[in-house]
Amino acid sequence: MTTATLLDHIGICTRDPEALWATYTALGFTLSPVARQSGGKPPVMLGTGNRCAMLRRGYVELLGIIDPELPDNGLGRFLDRYTGQHIIAFAMEDAEANLERLRAAGLEIPGIAWLERPVDAPDGPRARFARLPFPDAPEGRLQLIRHLTPELVWQPRWMDHANHAVALEATILVSDRPAESAARLSRLCGLPLEPDPAGGFALALPDGGRVRMLTPDALPAVLPGVAAPTLPFLAGYVLRTDDGNAAVRSLGLPVVPVPGGLMVPPAHAGGSALVFAG
Results as ranks from 00 to 15, higher is better:
M213L: 15
L214Q: 07
L214G: 09
L214Y: 15
T215G: 15
T215I: 14
T215E: 07
T215Y: 10
P216I: 13
P216F: 03
P216Q: 02
D217F: 13
D217I: 14
D217Y: 06
D217E: 11
D217V: 15
A218C: 13
L219H: 06
L219N: 03
L219I: 11
P220Y: 08
P220H: 03
A221V: 13
A221C: 12
V222H: 10
V222Y: 13
V222C: 09
L223E: 05
L223V: 12
P224V: 11
P224G: 07
P224S: 08
G225N: 00
G225F: 08
A227C: 09
A228V: 11
A228R: 07
A228C: 11
P229A: 08
P229W: 05
P229S: 07
P229E: 10
T230L: 10
T230S: 10
T230Y: 03
T230V: 12
L231N: 09
L231Q: 08
L231C: 09
P232R: 04
P232Y: 04
F233K: 04
F233G: 06
F233I: 04
F233N: 05
F233P: 02
F233L: 04
F233R: 04
L234S: 10
L234C: 09
A235G: 04
A235M: 02
A235L: 02
A235T: 03
A235D: 03
Y237D: 10
V238A: 05
L239K: 10
R240C: 06
R240P: 06
R240Y: 01
R240D: 09
T241F: 04
T241D: 12
D242K: 00
D242N: 10
D243H: 01
D243T: 00
G244N: 05
G244R: 00
N245C: 09
A247D: 06
V248Q: 09
R249V: 08
S250F: 00
S250C: 12
L251G: 05
L251C: 07
L251I: 05
G252T: 08
G252K: 08
G252F: 02
L253T: 03
P254Y: 08
V255S: 00
V255C: 03
V255F: 06
V256R: 00
V256C: 00
V256G: 00
V256K: 00
P257K: 09
P257D: 10
P257L: 15
P257N: 05
V258T: 12
V258E: 01
G260L: 15
G260M: 15
G260F: 13
G260A: 15
G261C: 14
G261L: 14
L262Y: 05
M263N: 01
M263P: 00
M263F: 14
M263Y: 07
M263Q: 02
V264Y: 02
V264F: 06
P265D: 02
P265Q: 02
P265W: 06
P266W: 03
P266L: 13
